[in-house]
Design a protein around this nucleic acid. Structure first.
Length: 438
RNA sequence: GUGGGUAUAGCUCAGGUGGAAGAGCAUCGGAUUGUGGUUCCGAAUGUCGAGGGUUCAAGUCCCUUUACCCACCCCA
């Protein structure tokens, strides 16, 4: 006998989890569409040369390589595939191109599964290709926040920063080097390892005490968004100023889109790992669950598509991390436990009356009501118990009496009341009561 | 990959100093042969993660191994 096992980091989804997942997806997809985004899909398998495109060694370790002579791997995110896709289909795509893409990605995490970390998970990406106005970035931010709002999160923060601000700060601190990404990564850990942790890490990387202190001082600027931006301006560096100006405009635009920007926190410490970002960068986090990592993350990447197309196309987008959101919602108990879509259970009274049960089930379905037939003529208590356990709101039953009179019994399981009705009346009563519940 | 922790029933976990495997929940049956949630009664369930060692005796001590959890790294 084979022992049933799962490869670590992979998950089975039980029905109650899948129902919650589908519900989240529906909400997210609806929001994407409401902003005019249209769907695409790309294959799970890409050529390694595509996957390694720009990010090189960093991504290298995350890729599941497929043992195949053609040099293949599983995608570990969707953006690189988008860049390839846009380059190949540029002439047939609308401009600007607003696309959403909801698909799984795979990451060969060295670590085993941890809270909110998986080796296979779904990303919901929205990106706008071909525009560089700050309105574009603002739109992506607004969509991210709208998704979290509608999903029921109240205490998240959207951390916002700008590549130019970061790079400028690094430069005026005198830390310029060929590995600024490594400096940025150290800064990014601030919230986890603290100021002193960042300091010692940077010192270990060989930067001078004086410069490290200077950088930490810059990055540690605090205050509300407008004073922070003003302080950045005071540093009087062209690069930093341009970044700050961009951020100011983005926030203003988010506000005018009807999304309150109070959850936006400009954070000079937030860096993000992927090094293809060129402008604004952002991610959302939950202060209540600091170990969960970010729920969404994105930014502007104006020269990623260029590595495939040969000329630069501005682009901006974000990922909504469906699986991490689900994990966070479970942790915060924001998920209602639903284990079926069924609204009506049709009781099987006896073999002789099976045809009646089958027929009335069909009636309910015709009216668009999810209806389940019990099939086995078990004891009525068992059948009602099943409806109760599955949280099915209505049970209908046709016994000998009802069969004679051409009626049925309809029971509302939530309030415990039941009525003897004609079939049509039963159907319309369920329709009406379901509307009231929704 | 590195460091730490855990592994006992389907689930959550008890089982000082070694001495005949337990509880709660869930499951199944019944009280109630045309009606669920509460209650009451009853039943079934374990290679105590795997392999080896110490011992008269190991769930308990030692070694090895595997899986999971936490942290680092990186990220959604």
């Amino acid at each position: 006998m084979a022992v049933p096992r799962l490869y670590r980091g992979m998950r089975d989804f039980l029905p109650d989890t899948m129902i919650a997942r589908e519900k989240l997806l529906k909400i997210i997809r609806k929001i994407f569409r409401s902003w005019g985004y249209i769907p695409i899909e790309t294959p799970a398998i890409e050529l390694l040369e595509t996957l390694l495109g720009k990010s090189g060694t960093e991504a290298d370790k995350l890729i599941y390589r497929i043992e195949h002579a053609d040099g293949l791997g599983l995608r570990y995110e969707l953006t690189i595939s988008l860049a390839r896709f846009v380059s190949m289909h540029w002439d047939s795509l609308p401009k600007p191109f607003r696309r959403y893409q909801i698909q799984p990605v795979w990451r060969a995490e060295r670590a085993q599964k941890q809270k909110g970390r998986f080796r296979e998970f779904i990303q919901c990406d929205v990106d706008i290709i071909g525009l560089n106005s700050p309105l574009t970035d603002a739109e992506i931010l607004a969509i991210s926040m709208q998704c979290l709002d509608r999903l029921g999160f109240t205490d998240y923060k959207l951390l916002l920063n700008h590549r130019n601000v970061l790079l400028g700060l690094v430069k005026i601190a005198g830390l310029e080097s060929d590995d600024e990404a490594s400096v940025l990564r150290s800064i990014d850990k601030w919230d986890k390892i603290g100021k002193d942790g960042v300091r010692s890490e940077l010192l270990k990387k060989g930067y001078s005490e004086k410069n490290v202190s200077k950088l930490i001082e810059f990055v540690n600027l605090t205050g509300d968004n407008s004073t922070l931006l003003a302080e950045l301006d005071l540093l009087n560096n062209k690069q930093i100023k341009s970044g700050a100006k961009n951020l100011r405009e983005i926030i203003k635009n988010v506000n005018s889109m009807g999304i309150s920007p109070e959850k936006i926190v400009i954070s000079p410490k937030m860096a993000r790992g992927l090094d293809y970002y060129t402008g604004a960068i952002f991610e959302t986090v939950l202060p209540e669950l600091p170990q969960m990592g970010s729920l969404t993350g994105g930014g502007r990447f104006d020269n990623l598509i260029g590595i495939f197309l040969g000329r630069e196309i501005p682009a901006c987008g974000t990922t909504i991390g469906l699986d991490r959101i689900l994990a966070a919602m479970k942790e915060l108990k924001l998920i209602k436990n639903i284990n079926t879509y069924t609204k009506v259970l049709v009781v099987m009274f006896s073999e002789e009356l099976a045809n009646k049960a089958v027929a009335i089930a069909g009636k309910f379905r015709e009216a668009g009501i999810a209806t389940e037939l019990f099939i086995e003529p078990k004891k009525l208590s068992k059948q009602f118990e099943y409806a109760n356990k599955m949280n099915i709101p209505f049970v209908t039953l046709i016994g000998e009496d009802e069969a004679k009179s051409g009626k049925c019994v309809l029971k509302n399981m939530n309030i415990g009341e039941q009525w003897t009705l004609s079939w049509d009346d039963a159907v319309s009563k369920v329709v009406k009561e379901l509307k009231e519940i929704m």
